[in-house]
Each structure stands twice: as structure tokens, then as C-alpha cells.
Design a protein around this nucleic acid. Structure first.
Length: 870
RNA sequence: GCCCCCGUGGCGGAAUUGGUAGACGCGCCUGACUCAAAAUCAGGUUUCCUCACGGAAGUGUUGGUUCGAGUCCGACCGGGGGCACCA
């Protein structure tokens, strides 16, 4: 439906939003209204929205995110806080390199042009941002500090190189962190990741695993959902490491030493019937050297890799090794040892003991290979279970387990761990699912890793005086692979330690490092000598309110929490957590359209016609309307913010973003909704400007008494203040909008009357204008000036409600008969129970319902309800 | 498979946290203005019965707790999200 857009251009506008919006944006900019400066005498408030990747143009998701943040920023400002509300650019990343390959534009040029475009777009939204603090992570003045911090972390043992099996994205030609592999596929490319053994840089996030987990409980202003996701990701499990002596059955006489396994069920040790090692386990590798069959098996395991679909369908496979393991608690008892495709080298010790009686996976494996299935846990109620048919996973009592018999599972765990430790064959441990953060990327457009490889000195840090290690500009993108690596001169340097020819590290950092501390940099964005000034940082941090998409629940938010701790470890800060409050906003969705030939159509290419049908504008052919989905280029269901702002104005776009849908839920973008929001802006302007004629001047003396109508209006106004303040604080913007509609309706109905009514009308209008200020700042500023104010609304305080006007003298009390509503009675507020009861019993509708019966009981809830029970 | 969240009119969603279900907006219907339309304004809009007054039912289904349940508890159905051979 595009009637709306057409009607805008064909209707004479009484409120010229375009002119008004540019006017006020200019005023705010000229007066540096939103420039933030440290002021220890005032309480600070740091509002931050996740900074955008400069992809080219802003999308509706940005509009929603930044509108929400701006409401909070402007509101807190009006409440007297010294607000910091900055904006910057997450400017490194692969799309710039892809653009370089496809469009032959240098990544730097492409990025900065995009930044210019998007900055202009954001400015047209009228956001209360301090642009003087703008930063871009691709700027050497930014990333030099990042390189320095990395060197500090390296020195402190928080950064290290390790050879390991890593996830390789074959499309982007780079390795990925575990967090960036979703269902076995690269998070950006969707290509199945391959496994490669490479030496890569890692950050020791696992060092803080326990703290990152336990501190989640204290993040009270974080969504429960995000905390839960992080807790699951960290994945703490208690268990034991148990050492099994390996013995050779092939007669090689080699002493294989003890095999260390991890288990969360040491209570089931007596049910062990096999051992299983990862195909990548060193013992397997050693045996494979002389066993082609095992080599083949290992290769097969590697092939199945991590792709989720394959994992699900893949059968448990084992390869019997020429080894046995001696049971640590049963002298003389041995179990066979297998290499198995389901054991992960990355988790625990890469080796397990199999207890088929009480583990789903082990049961499947044992059944396949004809291994014994022993029962060591029985249901507490004494009922029998068929352990051969299915494993028994539930809680119960331990049986067939020597000194553990009769104990509960929990008690048995404690007791067996104590015994293992006593015997020196095991120990209780805590295991985390979280792995260290792999940060090397084989890409050009990222922050260079400040390290040098020297044949004689090994890996040497770049001396601080040589920072920043800057990216060279003259690179080529004509071939796949890392342009830094094939640059003719860049990587050739002298070793800082011995001076001999050496080679620069050509990998760059994962761009999630860039975004792990930008919020700190915003506190002193221009400081050259350090990432931030301690005093400034201490004043502004932590971020009081962070707002962004839930898709960053693990990646960005967990990394940032880690980075803050790493900085603490090297004494850069004493803070533990970067974000005090977090809000995750929902996505912006739109209907999808498909032409007869199946191709996707943009909303601009279709029109809804009479009879509810939808047709393609070009040839009037019918269009299939699909369900509403997140706006995406691939489905073409996108609406350009620029166009909306041009046709309807920023205030309308903002208002619509805040209306109807709760901010944490997905929002359905509809053309009808936008025109509705636009009409309301027009209506507001009309209501206000017509009312302003004949009002007493600003600051006129308050009348001693008010007419009933005037008091009613004042009540509505002051209730609006109270309600909307609460709503904004609670992020219930849709409710605040609803209240503003109600208040606008009241205002529209308010007729001129005596002097007190005129005074009340001015009061109400001024309150109204201040209340819409955070949401539609341009219109509000315009009306504020029209009301005769010389100062800016943006500099004006939030109105405070008069408590006396918030309570009503009379209340409507519902009268129920057996819990069913029969009618209502108007009573004075706080009418005593007995009088309320009397009034209710006199209600004709109740008397009729009673039909002569005597009430058995009467429940009176003061000011609420009277329930008569018969 | 495991964990979490959500099911309220034609639609988006309210409901002071156990106390008048459907605020507010969209859409739709009727009327006014208009030659007509758009815009605007006034009124209506959960469903069923009734000319009306009024009444009955009603928050995914079902059972329970309670004077009283959209709200609390149990089971089920449906939708969404996270994790997933993690030992």
C-alpha cells in the first residue's frame, strides 16, 4: 500500500517536518548541545548502542536500536544526568575485502565512504549523539592501543600461540573462533567449516571461565535469557579425572603410561566396559603410524568433522586398539581400548571410559561392538530396569560397586572422588565447555598482530616504540588468500631482538577484539598516549545502559567481559564488568513478496489493491504474500530508512519504531503503521498550535483555584508524567506511546474556559511537549519554541508530577456476585470496608442477582472490588 | 534429545503483578464536510442471543488451587530461540 506515500506529497502540509527537522539539527549541532564532558559534581549516565559496521547504508534495525537509545539518552539528560552518548564505527571486517575484490575499490576507501554516508543518515535521525567522540576501529590511532594491550596480555600470559585443530572457513579463507561456527558452518559464509591443524594466536578466556560464569548472577540489569545463554556457553561441569594404566596387547612392550580421562559420572566407574579415545588423541596418532587401518579410520573421522547434520546421522564408530586399560579400582580387571569417532579431543582429556549401562552414547557403542553392559545404578524405589535394552540415566542407588553400594548418585560421586585421590589414581575437577578465543585471521582488513617471527629468537613482540604496526595501503585483491602475506616488502623486517632478517606476523586480529573495548575508548577518544585516561574512564564507565541485538549474546558480550578482565589483570583498570545494564531489542520484520516466477519482490514493487489482493506494479500480475520475516536483502523485504525519513520525517520514523511493539520483541514494519504515525505528528502539531492562541504567557502566575474541568486536565497531565516516566525507565516505550495518545486525546478535547482552564491548558501543553521530547525531539523542540520558550527543550528538565494530582477522590469499585461482575459503584477513595460493603449490597444489579438469597460472605478489597458470595 | 521464552479481538498489543479482560494504535463500519474523492471531524467495533433493555460465553487445550485466575500449579497442543556425540 503506497497510498500513504503518495498522499504525503499531494497534501498541503501544515507541519513542514523537513524544514523543522533540519533547523533543529543545525541548532543542536551549532550549540554543541550533546557534547559530553566529565563533571564530577554531577551523576553520569553512559548510554551506548552497539556501534554499526559501515556496510554502506543504515537499515531499519539501526533505526530501531538508535531510537531506543536516544529516548533513554534524552530522558536521562532531562533528568539531570551528565549523559555520554557516543557513536563510532566497527570498521574492520571482510565485507570491505569482498568489495575490493568485486568492485576494485580499496577497503579503506570503501569503508570511509560508507562511514560518510551512514553518518549523514544517522544525523538525519536527530540523535542526541556526541559526534566529537566519533571513532573508527580501522584508524591506526585506535588500533595502536589495541596492539599495545595485546602485548601486555602476551607478557601476562593471557595471549599465546598454540598448534591445534581449528575451524577453517573455505569461503573467507580464514580460521574462525568456536563462537563463530554455527551448526558446523561459518557464521558469515554459511560454508561448512573444515578442520585444519594450524599454529594460531589465542587469548586465554578460559582463565576467567569461573568468574565469567559466577559474575553473571550479579548482572541484574541484563536479560535473563542472555545470562542463561552465556552460562550454557561456558558450560561448567563437575567431575573427575581418572588415570588408567595402559597395557600393550600387541607385545610391543612399550610402556604407554597412564591414560587420563574425564568423567562427570565417577560414581559409575564400576560399570566401565571400555575406553574410548579421540581419533586425534596422541596415543592414537602414535599407534596409527604403524597401522594403515587405523590411519584410514582417523582420516574418516576427520572427514565427518563437525558438520551438525552429519554428526546427527553419523553412526558410532570405533577402532579397536592393541591396548587394554587396567581398572583403577579393580586390580586385575582390564577393559578394551578403542579409538572412537564420537570423542572430542577439545573437551576434557580427549578420552573417556564407557559405561553403557548409564549413558546413551556408550550404550549405543557397546551394543554395536558386543561389549558387556553392567548395571551399577538402580531406581531408588527398587523397580527393575532392562539395562540391555536402554541405559538407565535417572537418579538412583548405586549397586554392584563395592564400597559405593547403597549410596545415592551424589554421595557416591563425592566418596569415589575421595578414594581416587587417596589412591593417587584420580582427582575431582571442574571442566568447562568454553575454549580459548582463537584470534588469528588470515585477512588483510583487520588490526595487524604486533609480532615478529625470527629463525633464531622465535616469536618476538614488536617493540612498543614501533607501534602501531600499520597496514600497508598498496595491496592487491586479484587472488584469493591474504594480501598481507604476499605483499612484496611489508612482512620483511629485522628481528627486534637479534637484528637478523625476520618476518612479520601476517595474520590480523579477529574484529571482535576491536569491539571488545571501544566503549572504553569513548571515554577519552583522542588520547594518544594510552587507550584511555584513567580518571575519565573511571568517571564514565561502566556503560549504564547498553542496547543491541540479542545475536551478540555470546560473541561480543562475552569477549567484552573477558577483555575488561584482561585489562584488570594488567592493572589498566580495577573494573570487572563493562556493562551494567543491557537491553536486547527485537528485529524489524516485513512481509515478503513473491512474483509468479518465484522471484522475491521489494515492497516498492507491489501494491495492495481492492479486494485484498496484492499485485506487482509493473505488470499487474498477482503476487504471493509470504509471512513476515526479518528484513534482509536476500528476501528483498527491506524498507530504506532514508526514504522514510525523506517522505515522513525522522520523528515519524522514530515514533513508529517506539509504538505498538514492545522493544524486546520483533517489530512488524507496515506502511499503514507509518502513515498512522505520520498522521499523529500532524495531529499533534495541529492540536498544539491551535491551542497556543489565547494561552496565558509562559510563566504566568498559577491561579489559586481551578475549575473542575481544569483540575481534570491537570490530573491527566500529571498522571501522564508519572506513567511515562515509569514506562521509559522500564523500557516500555510502547506503553509510553499509548499514554501519550491518551493524553493527546484529552488535550484535543480540552475546551477553553475560565482563566484557570487556560492556565491548566498551558501547563498540560508544556508537559506534553516535554514528554514527547525524547521520542519526537524535532517536533517537541518546535512546539517548545512556539510556546514562547527561548531556551532549548533539549536543555530543559523533565517535568515532575504533583503527587496530590495523582490520586483520585473517587474510585470505581467493581461489584461481583460469586466472582462475576454485576456492576460498579463510585465510592470516595479509601471508603471503609463496611461502608463499601453496604454500598455494594445496595446495587440494584446485585440485588437482582441475589434473588433474595442471603450473602454467605463478602470480600472487600478497598478501592478495588467487593465480591459477594452466596 | 536437553534448556529457555511465548500463545489475549481482523491485526500490533494493554491489563496497577491474584481483583471491572481487550487500554492505546492499526484496520473496518456508520455519519458529517465535499459535485466527488483524499484529508479531517463525530460515533461504533471480542463473540453469540435480543428491536432494545439486558443476558451468556470468552485470554491455545485440559484439570487444579482460590471468594476471585490472562496472571499461580500439573498435563497436553502449537510457535520461537539457544545448545547439542561436551563424557
Amino acid at each position: 500500500m503506497f497510498f500513504g506515500i503518495r498522499s504525503v506529497s499531494s497534501t498541503p502540509q501544515r507541519y513542514n517536518f523537513h524544514e523543522t527537522e533540519t533547523k533543529w539539527q543545525k541548532v543542536w549541532e551549532e550549540r554543541q548541545t550533546f557534547k559530553a564532558a566529565m563533571d564530577k559534581a554531577r551523576p553520569k549516565y553512559y548510554v551506548l548502542e552497539m556501534f554499526p559496521y559501515p556496510s554502506g547504508r543504515i537499515h531499519m534495525g539501526h533505526v530501531r536500536n538508535y531510537t531506543q537509545g536516544d529516548v533513554i539518552a534524552r530522558y536521562k539528560r532531562a533528568r539531570g544526568f551528565n549523559v555520554l552518548h557516543p557513536m563510532g564505527w566497527d570498521a574492520f571486517g571482510l565485507p570491505a575485502e569482498n568489495a575490493a575484490m568485486e568492485k576494485k575499490v580499496h577497503p579503506k576507501k570503501w569503508t570511509y565512504e560508507n562511514i560518510a554516508t551512514m553518518k549523514a543518515q544517522l544525523k538525519s535521525m536527530g540523535l542526541s549523539l556526541d559526534w566529537s567522540r566519533e571513532l573508527a576501529t580501522c584508524d591506526p590511532t585506535y588500533y595502536r592501543h589495541q596492539q599495545k594491550m595485546f602485548l601486555d596480555f602476551w607478557k601476562a600470559g593471557l595471549a599465546y600461540r598454540k598448534e591445534a585443530w581449528v575451524n577453517w572457513d573455505p569461503v573467507d579463507n580464514t580460521v574462525l573462533a568456536n563462537e563463530q561456527v554455527i551448526e558446523g558452518k561459518g557464521w558469515r559464509t554459511g560454508a561448512p567449516v573444515e578442520r585444519r591443524k594450524l599454529t594460531q594466536w589465542n587469548l586465554r578466556i578460559t582463565h576467567f571461565a569461573d568468574e565469567l560464569l559466577s559474575r553473571l548472577d550479579t548482572l541484574e540489569r541484563w536479560p535473563e535469557k542472555v545470562r542463561l545463554m552465556q552460562a550454557n556457553w561456558i558450560g561448567k561441569s563437575r567431575g573427575a579425572r581418572v588415570f588408567w594404566q595402559l597395557a600393550d596387547t600387541a607385545g610391543a612392550k612399550k610402556d604407554w603410561g597412564k591414560l587420563e580421562i574425564f568423567t562427570t559420572r565417577p560414581d559409575t566407574l564400576y560399570g566401565a566396559s571400555f575406553m574410548a579415545l579421540s581419533a586425534e588423541h596422541p596415543v592414537v596418532a602414535e599407534l596409527a603410524a604403524k597401522d594403515p587401518g587405523l590411519q584410514h579410520f582417523v582420516a574418516e573421522c576427520r572427514k565427518t568433522g563437525t558438520a551438525a547434520a552429519e554428526v546427527e546421522t553419523a553412526e558410532k564408530q570405533g577402532y579397536k586398539l592393541p591396548l587394554v586399560a587396567e581398572h583403577p579400582l579393580l586390580p586385575g580387571k582390564t577393559v578394551p581400548v578403542y579409538a572412537a569417532n564420537f570423542v572430542l579431543m577439545e573437551y576434557g582429556t580427549g578420552a573417556i571410559f564407557g559405561c553403557p549401562g548409564h549413558d546413551e552414547r556408550d550404550h549405543e557403542f557397546a551394543t554395536k561392538y558386543g561389549l558387556p553392559i553392567l548395571q551399577v545404578v538402580a531406581p531408588a524405589d527398587g523397580s527393575a530396569v532392562d539395562i540391555a535394552a536402554a541405559p538407565y540415566i535417572e537418579d538412583g542407588v548405586i549397586v554392584n560397586s563395592d564400597f559405593l553400594d547403597g549410596l545415592s548418585v551424589e554421595d557416591a560421586k563425592t566418596k569415589v572422588i575421595a578414594r581416587l585421590e587417596e589412591m593417587g589414581v584420580g582427582k575431582g575437577t571442574v571442566q568447562y565447555r568454553l575454549r580459548d578465543w582463537l584470534v588469528s585471521r588470515q585477512r588483510y582488513w583487520g588490526c595487524p598482530i604486533p609480532a615478529i617471527h625470527c629463525e633464531s629468537c622465535g616469536v618476538v613482540p614488536v617493540p612498543e616504540k614501533d607501534l602501531p604496526v600499520e597496514l600497508p595501503d598498496d595491496v592487491t585483491f586479484d587472488r584469493p588468500g591474504n594480501p598481507l602475506d604476499r605483499h612484496p616488502t611489508w612482512k620483511h623486517v629485522a628481528c627486534p631482538s637479534c637484528g637478523k632478517p625476520a618476518r612479520r606476523e601476517t595474520d590480523t586480529f579477529d574484529t571482535f577484539i576491536d569491539s571488545s573495548w571501544y566503549f572504553d575508548r569513548f571515554t577519552s577518544p583522542h588520547l594518544a598516549t594510552a587507550p584511555f585516561d584513567r580518571e575519565e574512564n573511571h568517571y564514565w564507565m561502566p556503560v549504564d545502559q547498553y542496547i543491541g541485538g540479542v545475536e551478540h549474546a555470546i560473541l561480543h558480550l562475552l569477549y567484552s567481559r573477558f577483555w575488561t578482565r584482561a585489562m584488570r589483570e594488567v592493572q589498566m583498570t580495577s573494573r570487572d564488568e563493562p556493562f551494567d545494564g543491557l537491553f536486547t531489542q527485537g528485529m524489524v520484520c516485513h512481509e515478503t513478496y513473491r512474483a509468479g516466477d518465484g522471484t522475491w519482490l521489494t515492497p516498492e514493487e507491489v501494491e495492495r489493491v481492492e479486494g485484498g489482493r496484492t499485485i506487482r506494479l509493473s505488470d499487474r500480475s498477482p503476487v504471493e504474500v509470504g509471512r513476515s520475516e526479518k528484513m534482509s536483502k536476500s528476501k528483498k523485504n527491506v524498507v530504506d530508512p532514508d526514504q522514510i525519513i525523506r517522505d515522513y520525517g525522522a520523528d515519524t520514523a522514530r515514533w513508529f519504531m517506539l509504538s505498538d511493539s514492545p522493544p524486546e520483541r520483533d517489530l512488524e514494519w507496515t506502511e499503514a503503521g507509518v502513515t498512522g504515525a505520520w498522521r499523529f505528528q500532524q495531529r499533534l502539531h495541529r492540536i498544539a498550535t491551535t491551542a497556543i492562541d489565547g494561552l496565558p504567557p509562559a510563566g504566568a502566575a498559577k491561579p489559586a483555584t481551578f475549575s473542575d474541568a481544569a483540575t481534570a486536565l491537570r490530573r491527566a497531565a500529571h498522571k501522564a508524567i508519572a506513567g511515562i516516566s515509569t514506562d521509559i525507565e522500564a523500557f516500555h516505550f510502547n506503553k509510553a506511546v499509548a499514554r501519550l495518545y491518551e493524553f493527546a486525546n484529552t488535550l484535543d478535547q480540552a475546551k477553553g474556559g475560565d482563566e484557570s482552564a487556560q492556565w491548566a491548558l498551558r501547563e498540560a501543553l508544556e508537559i506534553f511537549v516535554r514528554l514527547i521530547g525524547p521520542m519526537t525531539p524535532h517536533l517537541a523542540e518546535e512546539l517548545w519554541a512556539a510556546l514562547g520558550h527561548k531556551s532549548l527543550l533539549a536543555d530543559s528538565p523533565w517535568p515532575l508530577p504533583d503527587d496530590a494530582l495523582l490520586v483520585d477522590d473517587t474510585v470505581t469499585v467493581a461489584v461481583q456476585l460469586n466472582g462475576k461482575l454485576r456492576g460498579t459503584v463510585a465510592l470516595a477513595k479509601d471508603t471503609p470496608k463496611d461502608q463499601a460493603e453496604k454500598a455494594a449490597l445496595a446495587l440494584p444489579e446485585l440485588v437482582r442477582g441475589l434473588d433474595g438469597k442471603t450473602p454467605k460472605r463478602v470480600i472487600v478489597v478497598p478501592n478495588r472490588i467487593v465480591n459477594v458470595v452466596v
